[in-house]
Simulated scan of single mutants.
Amino acid sequence: MCQFKEILKKEGSLQFSNPKLVSVTFTLNKNHILQLKERVRTKQVEEGKPSYPLSSFVVSCAYAWRCLVKAREYDGDIRQCFGSPVDWRSRMRPPIPSNYFGNCLGTFLSELKAVQVLGKNGIEMAAMEIGKSIDGLAGMDLGETLEAGIDKYLELVRSRLLTIAGSPKFRVYEVNFGWGRPVKVEVTSIVETGAMSCL
């Protein structure tokens, strides 16, 4: 422990984060989530759009995506991309055997122009696009999907890509190592990747 303290004393020996970045936690309560869901449902009905999954995760991500695009002051036809890890076990073709033990994570990617995300119905459009992207994973060939996903990611990594680190489905707040459940979980890799943690 003493050696570690000595290392910390040396100026510039460990860079914990970019000094230009600020990390902050936002909480959407149940009423916020319900209001967002209602807005998107109303828009889906008005436009006769297909009803894609409208989970708390989908509307929260749509809201965060819009806020980030607005904060970064993107506009016009600048392409905006949003991606997140998803559990592919129930979505894959060929299906995974029922006795499979482990995880099987893939990603989904959604794209919109900045003007669409920032428009009057930007949250609704973003939520519908995210829902469509998730819904579109069902029954896809794993090999084809992975190959296309890698190519797509390499193309999008040079554009304005917002990704999610973690997932509410990982249930990290239910973990108990004998000290009780965690009060707050931090995903430290987001400092380097610029991703958003959603747990």
Rank of each mutant, 00 (worst) to 15 (best):
C2A: 11
K5D: 15
E6Q: 12
K9C: 11
K9E: 14
K9V: 09
K9L: 11
P19M: 03
K20E: 09
K20H: 14
L21T: 08
L21W: 00
V22I: 12
S23W: 14
V24T: 14
T25H: 07
T25S: 12
T27C: 11
L28M: 05
L28A: 01
K30Q: 06
Q44G: 01
V45P: 02
V45T: 15
P50N: 06
S51P: 12
S56A: 15
V58M: 00
V58T: 07
V58F: 02
V59T: 02
V59E: 00
S60C: 02
C61M: 14
C61D: 01
A62V: 00
W65T: 01
L68V: 09
L68I: 11
V69P: 03
K70T: 05
A71H: 12
E73D: 05
Y74S: 09
G76I: 07
G76F: 05
D77F: 04
I78V: 13
I78S: 10
Q80R: 07
F82T: 02
F82R: 00
S84D: 08
S84F: 05
V86A: 07
V86L: 12
D87W: 01
W88H: 12
W88L: 14
S90C: 13
R91F: 04
R91A: 07
P94S: 08
Y100M: 12
Y100Q: 12
F101Q: 13
F101M: 15
G102L: 05
N103R: 08
L105T: 01
S110K: 04
E111Q: 11
E111D: 06
A114S: 08
G122D: 03
I123R: 05
M125R: 11
M125E: 13
A126I: 03
E129C: 03
S133G: 02
S133Q: 04
S133A: 13
I134N: 02
A138W: 05
G139Y: 08
G139S: 09
L142K: 13
G143R: 07
E144D: 09
E144A: 12
L146K: 05
L146Q: 07
G149D: 05
D151N: 14
D151R: 15
Y153P: 01
V157R: 11
V157I: 13
R158G: 14
T163A: 13
A165F: 07
A165M: 13
K169L: 15
V172A: 12
G180W: 00
G180T: 04
R181H: 14
P182A: 05
P182C: 04
V183Y: 10
V183G: 13
V185N: 01
E186D: 14
V187A: 07
T188W: 01
S189K: 02
S189Y: 04
T193K: 02
G194F: 10
M196L: 11
M196S: 05
L199D: 14
